[in-house]
Protein backbone atom coordinates (compact mmCIF):
# COMPACT_ATOMS: atom_id res chain seq x y z
CA UNK A 1 0.00 0.00 0.00
CA UNK A 2 2.62 2.54 1.12
CA UNK A 3 5.04 1.19 -1.48
CA UNK A 4 2.42 1.75 -4.18
CA UNK A 5 1.83 5.33 -3.04
CA UNK A 6 5.56 6.03 -2.79
CA UNK A 7 6.32 4.52 -6.17
CA UNK A 8 3.54 6.46 -7.90
CA UNK A 9 4.35 9.69 -6.07
CA UNK A 10 7.99 9.46 -7.11
CA UNK A 11 7.06 8.71 -10.72
CA UNK A 12 4.67 11.69 -10.80
CA UNK A 13 7.29 14.08 -9.46
CA UNK A 14 10.39 12.79 -11.21
CA UNK A 15 10.66 15.75 -13.58
CA UNK A 16 10.20 18.45 -10.96
CA UNK A 17 12.57 16.67 -8.57
CA UNK A 18 15.18 16.49 -11.31
CA UNK A 19 14.77 20.21 -11.96
CA UNK A 20 15.15 21.05 -8.25
CA UNK A 21 18.12 18.71 -7.86
CA UNK A 22 19.92 20.02 -10.94
CA UNK A 23 19.21 23.63 -9.96
CA UNK A 24 20.49 23.19 -6.40
CA UNK A 25 23.54 21.22 -7.50
CA UNK A 26 24.37 23.75 -10.22
CA UNK A 27 24.09 26.69 -7.83
CA UNK A 28 26.13 24.86 -5.22
CA UNK A 29 28.86 24.10 -7.79
CA UNK A 30 28.77 27.73 -8.89
CA UNK A 31 29.29 29.07 -5.37
CA UNK A 32 32.07 26.55 -4.70
CA UNK A 33 33.71 27.43 -7.99
CA UNK A 34 33.73 31.19 -7.43
CA UNK A 35 35.28 30.81 -3.96
CA UNK A 36 38.73 30.53 -5.54
CA UNK A 37 38.21 34.00 -7.00
CA UNK A 38 37.26 35.48 -3.64
CA UNK A 39 39.50 33.71 -1.14
CA UNK A 40 42.52 35.94 -1.59
CA UNK A 41 40.62 39.18 -1.83
CA UNK A 42 39.64 41.69 0.81
CA UNK A 43 36.09 40.40 0.92
CA UNK A 44 36.16 40.04 4.69
CA UNK A 45 37.02 43.69 5.09
CA UNK A 46 34.38 44.62 2.56
CA UNK A 47 31.81 42.61 4.52
CA UNK A 48 32.86 44.24 7.77
CA UNK A 49 32.57 47.68 6.19
CA UNK A 50 28.87 47.14 5.57
CA UNK A 51 26.45 48.76 8.04
CA UNK A 52 25.93 46.60 11.10
CA UNK A 53 22.21 46.46 10.53
CA UNK A 54 22.75 44.91 7.10
CA UNK A 55 25.23 42.40 8.48
CA UNK A 56 22.81 41.55 11.27
CA UNK A 57 20.11 40.80 8.76
CA UNK A 58 22.31 38.40 6.81
CA UNK A 59 24.29 36.91 9.66
CA UNK A 60 26.63 39.13 11.66
CA UNK A 61 28.71 36.28 13.12
CA UNK A 62 29.70 34.91 9.74
CA UNK A 63 33.37 35.07 8.81
CA UNK A 64 33.24 35.74 5.10
CA UNK A 65 36.93 35.12 4.73
CA UNK A 66 36.43 31.38 5.24
CA UNK A 67 34.99 28.90 2.75
CA UNK A 68 32.13 27.84 5.00
CA UNK A 69 31.32 31.47 5.82
CA UNK A 70 31.30 32.38 2.14
CA UNK A 71 29.13 29.36 1.24
CA UNK A 72 26.71 30.15 4.07
CA UNK A 73 26.29 33.79 3.15
CA UNK A 74 26.06 33.20 -0.59
CA UNK A 75 23.80 30.17 -0.52
CA UNK A 76 22.68 28.65 2.77
CA UNK A 77 21.32 31.82 4.36
CA UNK A 78 19.04 33.08 1.59
CA UNK A 79 18.78 31.11 -1.63
CA UNK A 80 18.68 27.65 -0.09
CA UNK A 81 15.82 28.39 2.34
CA UNK A 82 13.93 30.10 -0.45
CA UNK A 83 14.22 27.19 -2.90
CA UNK A 84 13.58 24.42 -0.38
CA UNK A 85 10.68 26.32 1.20
CA UNK A 86 9.05 26.67 -2.22
CA UNK A 87 9.68 22.97 -2.79
CA UNK A 88 8.25 22.02 0.63
CA UNK A 89 5.09 24.13 0.35
CA UNK A 90 4.51 23.07 -3.25
CA UNK A 91 4.99 19.38 -2.47
CA UNK A 92 2.67 19.41 0.53
CA UNK A 93 -0.09 21.41 -1.13
CA UNK A 94 -0.08 19.17 -4.23
CA UNK A 95 -0.09 16.01 -2.12
CA UNK A 96 -3.40 16.66 -0.34
CA UNK A 97 -5.26 19.85 -1.27
CA UNK A 98 -4.20 19.53 -4.91
CA UNK A 99 -5.61 16.02 -5.20
CA UNK A 100 -8.83 16.98 -3.45
CA UNK A 101 -9.20 19.95 -5.79
CA UNK A 102 -8.60 17.85 -8.90
CA UNK A 103 -11.07 15.24 -7.67
CA UNK A 104 -8.55 12.40 -7.89
CA UNK A 105 -8.55 12.02 -4.09
CA UNK A 106 -12.06 10.57 -4.43
CA UNK A 107 -10.76 7.89 -6.75
CA UNK A 108 -7.80 7.19 -4.45
CA UNK A 109 -9.98 6.95 -1.34
CA UNK A 110 -12.42 4.67 -3.15
CA UNK A 111 -9.62 2.09 -2.84
CA UNK A 112 -8.92 0.17 0.40
CA UNK A 113 -6.38 2.67 1.68
CA UNK A 114 -6.71 4.59 4.95
CA UNK A 115 -6.55 8.36 4.89
CA UNK A 116 -3.78 8.32 7.47
CA UNK A 117 -1.78 6.03 5.18
CA UNK A 118 -2.17 8.52 2.34
CA UNK A 119 -0.93 11.42 4.52
CA UNK A 120 1.88 9.34 6.02
CA UNK A 121 3.06 8.00 2.66
CA UNK A 122 3.02 11.45 1.09
CA UNK A 123 4.93 12.89 4.07
CA UNK A 124 7.43 10.06 3.93
CA UNK A 125 8.02 10.67 0.24
CA UNK A 126 8.44 14.38 0.93
CA UNK A 127 10.97 13.66 3.68
CA UNK A 128 12.97 11.29 1.49
CA UNK A 129 13.06 13.72 -1.43
CA UNK A 130 14.02 16.55 0.95
CA UNK A 131 16.96 14.47 2.18
CA UNK A 132 17.94 13.82 -1.43
CA UNK A 133 17.84 17.54 -2.25
CA UNK A 134 19.92 18.41 0.82
CA UNK A 135 22.45 15.81 -0.28
CA UNK A 136 22.37 17.20 -3.82
CA UNK A 137 23.28 20.60 -2.42
CA UNK A 138 26.04 19.43 -0.12
CA UNK A 139 27.77 16.74 -2.21
CA UNK A 140 29.30 19.39 -4.54
CA UNK A 141 30.69 21.05 -1.40
CA UNK A 142 32.30 17.82 -0.20
CA UNK A 143 33.79 17.16 -3.60
CA UNK A 144 34.55 20.76 -4.60
CA UNK A 145 35.91 22.36 -1.41
CA UNK A 146 39.28 20.54 -1.46
CA UNK A 147 39.65 21.30 -5.16
CA UNK A 148 39.22 25.06 -4.70
CA UNK A 149 41.26 25.11 -1.50
CA UNK A 150 38.31 25.58 0.83
CA UNK A 151 38.33 24.20 4.33
CA UNK A 152 35.25 22.26 5.31
CA UNK A 153 34.34 20.14 8.31
CA UNK A 154 32.60 16.89 7.51
CA UNK A 155 31.15 16.83 10.99
CA UNK A 156 29.86 20.32 10.33
CA UNK A 157 28.26 19.16 7.08
CA UNK A 158 26.56 16.29 8.90
CA UNK A 159 25.32 18.67 11.61
CA UNK A 160 24.10 21.12 8.98
CA UNK A 161 22.28 18.31 7.15
CA UNK A 162 20.43 17.36 10.32
CA UNK A 163 19.47 20.92 11.15
CA UNK A 164 18.46 21.74 7.56
CA UNK A 165 16.36 18.59 7.33
CA UNK A 166 14.49 19.41 10.55
CA UNK A 167 14.03 23.07 9.56
CA UNK A 168 12.64 22.38 6.07
CA UNK A 169 10.65 19.38 7.26
CA UNK A 170 9.02 21.67 9.83
CA UNK A 171 7.99 24.01 7.00
CA UNK A 172 6.79 21.03 4.96
CA UNK A 173 4.89 19.59 7.92
CA UNK A 174 2.89 22.68 8.74
CA UNK A 175 2.24 23.00 4.98
CA UNK A 176 0.88 19.44 5.07
CA UNK A 177 -1.44 20.56 7.86
CA UNK A 178 -2.85 23.42 5.76
CA UNK A 179 -3.04 21.12 2.74
CA UNK A 180 -5.10 18.72 4.86
CA UNK A 181 -7.53 21.47 5.83
CA UNK A 182 -8.17 23.16 2.50
CA UNK A 183 -9.68 21.81 -0.72
CA UNK A 184 -7.89 24.37 -2.85
CA UNK A 185 -4.21 24.03 -3.61
CA UNK A 186 -3.72 27.75 -4.15
CA UNK A 187 -5.33 28.53 -0.80
CA UNK A 188 -3.08 25.99 0.95
CA UNK A 189 -0.03 27.55 -0.73
CA UNK A 190 -1.21 31.06 0.13
CA UNK A 191 -1.64 30.32 3.84
CA UNK A 192 1.57 28.26 4.14
CA UNK A 193 3.60 30.90 2.31
CA UNK A 194 1.96 33.61 4.41
CA UNK A 195 3.06 31.88 7.61
CA UNK A 196 6.59 31.54 6.23
CA UNK A 197 6.81 35.18 5.16
CA UNK A 198 5.52 36.24 8.57
CA UNK A 199 8.17 34.06 10.23
CA UNK A 200 10.90 35.53 8.05
CA UNK A 201 9.76 39.10 8.68
CA UNK A 202 9.62 38.42 12.41
CA UNK A 203 13.15 36.99 12.27
CA UNK A 204 14.53 40.06 10.52
CA UNK A 205 12.65 42.56 12.71
CA UNK A 206 13.71 40.76 15.87
CA UNK A 207 17.29 41.65 15.06
CA UNK A 208 16.52 45.35 15.11
CA UNK A 209 13.84 45.76 17.74
CA UNK A 210 14.18 44.59 21.32
CA UNK A 211 10.43 44.42 21.88
CA UNK A 212 9.84 42.28 18.78
CA UNK A 213 12.81 40.19 19.81
CA UNK A 214 10.69 38.90 22.71
CA UNK A 215 8.62 37.09 20.09
CA UNK A 216 11.53 35.79 18.06
CA UNK A 217 10.90 32.31 19.40
CA UNK A 218 7.69 32.24 17.34
CA UNK A 219 9.66 32.34 14.09
CA UNK A 220 10.98 29.08 12.64
CA UNK A 221 13.96 31.06 11.34
CA UNK A 222 15.00 31.58 14.96
CA UNK A 223 15.96 27.90 14.90
CA UNK A 224 17.83 27.99 11.59
CA UNK A 225 21.50 28.86 11.90
CA UNK A 226 23.47 27.03 9.19
CA UNK A 227 26.80 28.73 9.93
CA UNK A 228 26.82 27.57 13.53
CA UNK A 229 26.33 23.94 12.43
CA UNK A 230 28.62 24.04 9.41
CA UNK A 231 31.46 25.97 11.06
CA UNK A 232 31.41 24.66 14.61
CA UNK A 233 29.35 21.45 14.34
CA UNK A 234 27.73 22.78 17.46
CA UNK A 235 24.28 21.39 18.15
CA UNK A 236 21.61 23.62 19.69
CA UNK A 237 19.54 20.77 21.05
CA UNK A 238 16.73 23.03 22.19
CA UNK A 239 16.36 24.45 18.69
CA UNK A 240 16.40 21.01 17.14
CA UNK A 241 13.78 19.86 19.64
CA UNK A 242 11.51 22.77 18.66
CA UNK A 243 11.85 21.87 14.97
CA UNK A 244 11.24 18.18 15.66
CA UNK A 245 8.23 19.09 17.81
CA UNK A 246 6.82 21.23 15.01
CA UNK A 247 7.16 18.29 12.62
CA UNK A 248 5.47 15.82 14.96
CA UNK A 249 2.62 18.11 16.02
CA UNK A 250 1.93 19.44 12.50
CA UNK A 251 1.97 15.98 10.95
CA UNK A 252 -0.25 14.52 13.65
CA UNK A 253 -2.68 17.43 13.22
CA UNK A 254 -2.67 16.91 9.44
CA UNK A 255 -3.50 13.22 9.86
CA UNK A 256 -6.25 13.88 12.41
CA UNK A 257 -7.85 16.62 10.35
CA UNK A 258 -7.64 14.70 7.07
CA UNK A 259 -9.23 11.66 8.69
CA UNK A 260 -12.22 13.68 9.85
CA UNK A 261 -12.90 16.00 6.95
CA UNK A 262 -15.29 15.56 4.04
CA UNK A 263 -13.64 14.76 0.74
CA UNK A 264 -15.72 16.43 -1.92
CA UNK A 265 -14.97 18.98 -4.61
Amino acid sequence: MVKNLLHRGLADRRVSLLVYACGLAAYSIFIVAIWSSFKNTQIEQLWNSYPESLRKAFGASINLGTFDGFFTLEFLNQMWPLVLSVFSIGFASASLAGEVEKGTMEMLLAQPVARRTVVAARHLLYSLTLLALIATTLVPVIVGAPIVGGSISYTGLAALSLQAFLFFAAIGSYSFFFAAIFSSRSLAIFVSAGVLIFAYALDIMSKFNDFINHFHFLSLFNYYDPYRYLHDASFAWGDLAVLAGTIVISTAAAVLWFERRDIAV
Binding site: G103, T104, M107, A110, Q111, P112, V113, V265
Partner: peptide
Protein backbone atom coordinates in the same frame (compact mmCIF):
# COMPACT_ATOMS: atom_id res chain seq x y z
CA UNK B 1 -11.21 0.96 4.48
CA UNK B 2 -12.53 -2.54 5.17
CA UNK B 3 -15.68 -1.79 3.15
CA UNK B 4 -13.64 -0.79 0.14
CA UNK B 5 -12.13 -4.25 -0.04
CA UNK B 6 -15.60 -5.37 -1.05
CA UNK B 7 -16.69 -2.40 -3.15
CA UNK B 8 -15.97 -0.96 -6.58
CA UNK B 9 -17.17 2.55 -7.31
CA UNK B 10 -17.39 5.20 -9.99
CA UNK B 11 -17.72 8.94 -9.43
CA UNK B 12 -20.51 10.90 -11.08
CA UNK B 13 -18.10 13.47 -12.41
CA UNK B 14 -15.20 11.23 -13.35
CA UNK B 15 -11.85 12.74 -12.34
CA UNK B 16 -8.77 10.81 -13.33
CA UNK B 17 -5.01 11.31 -13.08
Amino acid sequence: VEIKRHVGATQGDVRLY
